[in-house]
Amino acid sequence: MRMLHTMIRVGNLDRSLDFYQEVLGMRLLRKEEYPSGKFTLAFVGYGDEIDHTVLELTHNWDTSEYDLGNGYGHIAIEVDNATKACDMARQKGGKVIREAGPMMHGTTVIAFIEDPDGYKIEFIEKNT
């Protein structure tokens, strides 16, 4: 068994694709429209689905925003340097909501940014 993807619902697919591609450097792997169901699925990631876990962006055509609820946590991305990742995200229009620094009760360096729909993305600095 292996993890295939995580799905999140987005209110504006173009805005979300821009964020995940331009701010986080993912690439669009495939996009499928389902007119009879009035939704589009877009899969983004850092590598091909055959051997990488990816992110599925689901856009329901008649819904422009979602209540994220209190059960969702975050998407985690490993980075070489969390401070530089925050700076790069900010320069590309990303919203940094927690600057890089040690996690509470630990030493791992983390930071958080937010996507256009309010989903949290954690940068975890690689241990070298």
Rank of each mutant, 00 (worst) to 15 (best):
T83Y: 06
I50M: 00
G93W: 06
G25P: 10
A76F: 02
H52D: 11
M1G: 14
Y119H: 15
Y72R: 03
I8K: 01
A82P: 04
M3S: 07
M7D: 02
L68Y: 12
E56H: 11
Y20F: 08
R15W: 07
V54P: 06
G45E: 01
V44A: 01
Y72I: 10
I110P: 02
S16L: 06
T128N: 14
L41C: 01
D80R: 08
E22P: 07
F39Q: 14
M88A: 14
H74Y: 10
M104Y: 12
F39K: 13
G71S: 13
M1K: 13
I113S: 08
E114F: 02
P102H: 12
L17E: 10
D62N: 08
E49I: 04
V79W: 07
R98V: 00
A100R: 10
T108D: 04
M88Y: 15
I113P: 11
D80F: 05
L41V: 08
A100L: 11
L13C: 09
G118R: 06
V44P: 01
F123A: 03
K31D: 07
H52Y: 14
I50S: 03
V44D: 04
N81K: 12
G73T: 08
I75H: 13
E56I: 10
Y34E: 04
V79Q: 07
T6A: 11
G47Q: 00
T53A: 13
G69W: 05
T6H: 06
V44H: 01
I121Q: 05
K120Q: 15
R98M: 01
Q91W: 08
M1T: 08
I8M: 04
M103V: 11
C86R: 06
M7A: 09
G37T: 15
D115V: 09
L28N: 06
Y72Q: 04
I110Y: 03
I75D: 00
N12Q: 12
I8A: 00
K120R: 15
E56G: 04
M7V: 06
G45K: 05
A76T: 06
H52Q: 15
A76S: 12
K84R: 14
L57M: 05
A42R: 10
D80E: 14
L17C: 15
K84H: 13
K84G: 06
I77F: 06
G47N: 01
A42I: 14
A100Y: 09
I97A: 02
V23W: 03
D115K: 03
L24A: 11
I121K: 01
Y66C: 12
A76E: 03
